[in-house]
Amino acid sequence: MNRVFRKMKLLALFLLMLCLSGSSMAAQRRSVRCRNKSSRCFNAWYLCPSACPGCYFPGSICEDPRFVGGDGITFYFHGRKDQDFCLVSDPNLHINAHFIGKRNPNLKRDFTWVQSIGIIFSNHKLLVAAKHTSTWDDNVDRLTISFDDMPISLPINEGSKFQSQMEPSVTILRTSNTNHVMVEVANSFRVNVVVVPITVEESRVHGYNITDENCFAHLELRLKFYNLTDLVDGVIGQTYRRNYVSKAKVNVPMPVIGGLRKFSSSNIFATDCPASRFGWHTVAKDGATQYSTLQCISGMKGNGVVCKR
């Protein structure tokens, strides 16, 4: 039995060394948890460099910001710093993201990251955000959460949970002592959220020019949806439509999609972007679909509106 444990330990160390090769552990902030129940390392956290990709799964958003769509295709949407953009919009769900960033005079775009998300469902609002941070410390929680404008304070220990008393049920769960939470609305969506900084190494490699005044703490997200319609839109929402054809040029190193005007929202909880589908209602009648509220590409919306098809 001891021999088996020794082999498992050596295997875990070998995998960790592969993950850390070519990069200093102290300079990186990503972490993964051992999920091998037959190993003594089970449930332990290990740091990995940013070179170990963490943005694999459909519905993932990370880095500058990189998206993996519902179709599995990876693309970038840079947006603009200090502005809000619609990530997902469906009749019963709307998710905006607030982008922070820095201007690079050598580029035509900003370096941007997702600092917060505002989620609207039914008559409720949920905010998850990364706090402004100068010097990063993994042991300090940099998350701020509010539900219907009321702050949610979770004890700083893994497993602490908020559970709403209303329907649909809202669950907010710490998945690590600090900076990791899971947010779920029953029969609608689940999002895993991690707050991460821009590390010194990342800044050096990409030319971000991050200083000690601000490490640009931001969110990395993994979204899962339970009940999207085929009307869904938004930067990543559109990729969940059955007839969606990706606009990203997948044969280039950094496939980028546009849509600044289409996805731009006036604030973190606004549903006024041209891509908005929130509040739309469809009624099947004689084989046709009717919309009780409608928004045109011009921005005109409401009952009795007629748009070009």
Rank of each mutant, 00 (worst) to 15 (best):
Lys262Phe: 12
Asp84Arg: 03
Thr133Trp: 10
Gly258Ala: 07
Asn139Cys: 10
Ala275Gly: 04
Ala217Trp: 05
Val195Asn: 06
Asp84His: 15
Phe147Lys: 02
Thr293Met: 01
Phe67Asn: 02
Asp71His: 01
His218Glu: 08
Val196Gly: 02
Gly101Asn: 06
His78Asn: 05
Ile172Lys: 02
Tyr240Gly: 02
Lys161His: 03
Leu127Lys: 11
Leu15Trp: 03
Arg35Ile: 15
Asn92Ile: 09
Val191Asn: 11
Asn214Thr: 08
Arg190Tyr: 00
Ala51Glu: 12
Asn209Gln: 09
Asn227Pro: 05
His78Lys: 05
Arg242Leu: 02
Asn267Met: 06
Pro155Thr: 04
Thr293Glu: 00
Phe67Tyr: 13
Asn123Ile: 07
Arg80Asn: 11
Asp137Ser: 15
Leu18Phe: 14
Ser164His: 07
Lys249Val: 14
Leu143Lys: 07
Arg33Ser: 06
Arg29Pro: 00
Glu184Val: 01
Ser265Met: 13
Asp82Trp: 03
Ile119Cys: 06
Phe216Ile: 09
Met166Val: 07
Arg80Ser: 14
Lys81Ser: 15
Phe225Asp: 05
Asn192Met: 14
Asn92Met: 10
Cys273Gln: 02
Leu16Gln: 13
Leu13Met: 13
Ser50Met: 08
Lys81Arg: 15
Ala270Ile: 08
Phe269Arg: 01
Arg103Glu: 12
Cys215Pro: 08
Lys285Gln: 11
Thr178Cys: 13
Ser164Ile: 05
Arg30Ile: 01
Met150Val: 14
Phe269His: 01
Thr144Pro: 00
Leu127Ala: 02
Phe121Pro: 01
Val245Gln: 13
Leu260Gln: 11
Glu201Asn: 04
Tyr56Thr: 05
Trp136Tyr: 14
Val185Tyr: 02
Ala186Phe: 05
Lys285Met: 06
Val114Trp: 01
Asn243Arg: 05
Pro151Ala: 11
Thr178Glu: 09
Arg6Val: 00
Ser31Glu: 08
Leu126Thr: 10
Asn243Pro: 01
Arg204Ala: 13
Glu220Ser: 14
Thr293Gln: 05
Leu18Met: 07
Pro253Gln: 10
Cys41His: 12
Cys273Asp: 09
Val193Cys: 09
Leu223Trp: 10
Gly287Phe: 09
Ser21Val: 12
Arg174Val: 06
Gln295Val: 07
Gly101Ser: 09
Phe111Ile: 12
Lys125Pro: 00
Ser160Lys: 02
Met182Ala: 07
Leu20Phe: 00
His98Asn: 14
Leu294His: 10
Ala12Pro: 00
Phe111Trp: 14
Gly207Pro: 09
Lys161Val: 15
Asp286Lys: 04
Ile100Cys: 08
Leu93Arg: 02
Ser160Tyr: 01
Lys81Gly: 04
Val193Phe: 10
Phe14Ser: 15
Asn243Tyr: 12
Met150Tyr: 00
Lys131Val: 04
Ala27Cys: 03
Val140Gly: 03
Lys161Gly: 08
Gly299Thr: 09
Trp113Ala: 05
Thr74Ser: 13
Ser276Val: 03
Asn303Tyr: 01
Gly279Trp: 07
Val205Arg: 12
